[in-house]
Design a protein around this nucleic acid. Structure first.
Lengths: 117, 117
DNA sequence: GCCATAGGCAACTAAAGGGTTGCACATCGA
DNA sequence: TCGATGTGCAACCCTTTAGTTGCCTATGGC
């Protein structure tokens, strides 16, 4: 391993980035919002209310599934998609950590300035 | 106001999606990580350690700036970028709300099942 | 005033993304 | 059994994105 390089894009970044990217589309965010009530829905159901074809929605669902945000369960002739909060909780934790790090650094800076005339 | 229930893509989704999209790249995540210590850095500094050209990094920084995650401050001949925790805090709040909504719905479902033999 | 350094701008390429259409296939229900 | 419904698959299109190269401008230091 290369010793001292904690900064270059690492595996963890790749993983998070793929989840962020999956959420980086208004249609997909909307789909997630609908499924966050815990009730699984079919592709046909999820396609209702969008000015898009069923195929387009299918692709979006595929992206969300690849990111682990949704799971697909076949039931008879339909594919039901259900929400999984795990990945989004992870992101939330990560974002919280970064924000906290920033606030902490800022506080230290302020303290330093206050103590040095 | 934020607990999301919108059915189709709405303005709020567009805004959040753009921030999510900005974070949906490993290189950009890495840049954010570096700047989250609160210390502004120049493009040249930020370009170090990546197998990319300075121009590529410049573009990434532009994306992050457009999303409001970074701010640019010109200082002499260099452009300093500094971190702003606001957008990421918003996302964290949003993700937390969605997760909470899901857990709540799941709890209700369990309770319902327990009460109906 | 000179030169090295830091950035900005523009044009270009390759690949990924978002979307569509067309068609084949499985399954449900009367 | 038969038609309607729900999906899957593939090919295709257009736009965006990630990245490069080349060149020109501004600034800082000596």
């Amino acid at each position: 391993m290369s010793p001292p390089t904690p900064d270059r894009p690492v595996a963890a970044d790749q993983l998070r980035a793929s989840v962020f990217a999956a959420l980086g589309d208004a249609t997909r965010l909307s789909l997630v919002n609908r499924l966050a009530d815990g009730q699984p829905r079919s592709i046909a159901q999820l396609s209702e209310g969008y000015p898009l074809t069923r195929q387009a929605i299918t692709k979006h669902l595929g992206v969300l599934e690849s990111a682990g945000i949704l799971h697909r369960v076949r039931s008879g002739r339909e594919s039901l998609y259900e929400f999984d909060a795990g990945p989004m909780r992870d992101l939330s934790t990560y974002l919280e950590a970064v924000s906290r790090q920033w606030y902490a650094a800022l506080s230290r800076l302020k303290a330093f300035i206050a103590e040095n005339p």
